[in-house]
Design a protein around this nucleic acid. Structure first.
Lengths: 233, 233
DNA sequence: CTACCTTTGTGCTGTATAACACGGTTTTAT
DNA sequence: ATAAAACCGTGTTATACAGCACAAAGGTAG
């Protein structure tokens, strides 16, 4: 199946942000602590309440970070695209996971023990700055999201989610079709609404020719108008 | 009025988390870049859109971090108590402020230029770890808050806010009265509801003897029951 | 003291959205 | 191929909450 040993070049390509700041000694150390794991579609990667052990970097595939809210309603907090790091926050905060992660699609994920990361952090400030920057960006997004999800109306929230998916995962060759195919339920959990309302609102958007839907394929037709809907709430 | 020069001892007492990890050279550098500023009650400390220049540490007083949402509705994102640091996230993320800050009460705030912080960070990993930990904790809280504000019902949200205020600012000598006196409007903005509903729900809690209200003074009587209301949503 | 503004409190009305029910369709499993 | 399950779509009903409007109380200024 997979090769047992990856070359340093291959690792460097996988995790450039982590790799670049390191000295050659540190790189060797990291290479020794580098493992790769595969996850099937919809497979859980980690659960709420578990103790974090590894920093993860998504090599290929798409991942959702979500939380089980009150009454079994689940809420998608953020989504991860390839080359993005995740699962480290809880360790740094000295907590267990408060979120769960699952694969939208088949995924390849690289795992690095947090103890190794801590050792590298104690030696390398540039690496520390990478995490400071990343956490700061994510915190800003999270704050923004809180206001959007609580204050915008259904149409605004769904429009925002669609644009967010476009900005995150991009589009296919036609330049319009979102390159992620979500179930209506996931779309609802991302937009803080019930599945029925996600379906209904999506249909409305399609009737208004703002988007075109074909099963799970969504084409963004009138991006400007969607942005407007998202903005005014 | 205030002394021109603070002794190192005084500074160390003000900002222990920042001070402790530093070498004596770094401490001297920090002392030279240390200024103190006072803010009146309700005065704005920084605005949405401004460019962040200083790390701030609240020495005395209470501060709210908030966002203007859609349609002028404002939302309190987090609150700061004394000895807490704030205003640094946006700089690290290389953004302008996406939130605003204002004084709940008269405040004394110490300011340190972010450029000085960056210099210290490049030299001192322990300091970097402090920010990584702090940002990680705040990100967890923010994610938690998103779910709470979107999924819980009014009673749950208000109960949570009251407990949150107790946990953050504590109580007076009687061990029950919250030591922060908020307007009903601020309470509403903290709990994602209209002022009328904050007033109404607060009255309901009082009628049910869960709390006692006397103007802006709030006594938490049945903390367990409030926690239960907050938990079940 | 009087006037004025802000905050608090209450009732009424409207509506956005959740909740439920049910039928059709597609995917998965055997 | 057939059963089972998951997903999609639509209509109906119920309700939590926002949005006024207005009155009373408290604070502030002249």
């Amino acid at each position: 199946m997979a090769k047992k040993e990856l070359t340093e070049k291959e690792i460097a390509d996988c995790i450039p942000d982590l790799w670049m700041p390191l000295t050659s000694e540190q790189r060797e150390y990291l290479a020794q602590n580098f493992t790769v794991q595969k996850f099937k579609k919809n497979e859980t990667i980690y659960c709420e309440g578990e103790t974090p052990m590894h920093l993860m970097c998504l090599l290929t595939g798409k991942v959702k970070i979500y939380k089980e809210g009150v009454g079994g309603r689940s809420q998608i907090i953020r989504v991860i695209k390839d080359k993005e790091y995740f699962a480290y926050r809880a360790y740094f905060a000295e907590e267990n996971f408060v979120t769960a992660a699952a694969a939208f699609e088949p995924c390849t994920i690289c795992l690095i023990p947090m103890t190794a990361i801590m050792k590298l952090l104690s030696e390398n400030n540039e690496l520390a700055m990478f995490f400071i920057r990343q956490l700061s960006i994510d915190l800003g997004i999270s704050d923004e999201r809180t206001v959007n999800l609580t204050q915008k109306h259904i149409r605004g929230r769904l429009a925002e989610s669609l644009l967010f998916l476009k900005d995150t995962y991009g589009v296919e060759e036609d330049e319009f079709t979102l390159s992620i195919y979500l179930s209506r339920e996931d779309l609802a959990n991302l937009s803080n609404m019930t599945t029925s309302n996600a379906i209904r609102t999506l249909s409305n958007f399609a009737n208004e020719k703002l988007i075109a839907i074909d099963g799970r394929k969504i084409k963004i037709i009138e991006e400007d108008k969607l942005r407007k809907i998202s903005k005014i709430g």
